[in-house]
């Protein structure tokens, strides 16, 4: 009787601990998910604002009749600036720009 009582107490404690563990696990997952979402939002903003910035700059260079050489110099600068900071991969040529953030599996591309 005494042994059974001890066993059932242990079982109840185990159940309570398991419940606490499950709740904390759920909470931590929720926090992780929210942080992840926040990071993704920041990354999405960064990728689209950088893309827009590059696009408008190239558009303006064309408007002031900048030479192809000047646009190439700007693209080289873009590659050096953004290549190592936000984006693990930047593909571009004179008319088409692709920005890729491999960490968040994001990609933005379009005509420039």
């Amino acid at each position: 009787m005494k042994r059974r009582g001890i066993l059932s107490t242990i079982l109840v404690i185990q159940l309570v601990l398991l419940l606490i563990l499950t709740v904390s696990q759920i909470q931590s997952e929720k926090e992780h998910f929210s942080t992840q979402q926040q990071f993704e939002r920041i990354a999405a903003y960064k990728i689209s604002s950088s893309f827009e910035n590059i696009r408008t700059n190239i558009e303006f260079l064309r408007e002031i009749n900048a030479t192809e050489e000047s646009i190439n110099i700007y693209l080289e600068y873009v590659n050096n600036t953004y290549g190592g900071i936000y984006f693990t991969n930047i593909h571009l040529n004179q008319t088409h720009l692709i920005l890729m953030d491999e960490a968040f599996e994001m990609r933005k591309e379009g005509l420039i």
Binding site: N57, F60, L61, A66, T67, E69, S70, I73
Partner: peptide, 8 residues
């Protein structure tokens, strides 16, 4: 004047 260096 063939090189333009630009930023905003």
């Amino acid at each position: 004047g063939k090189i333009d260096i630009y930023d905003n």
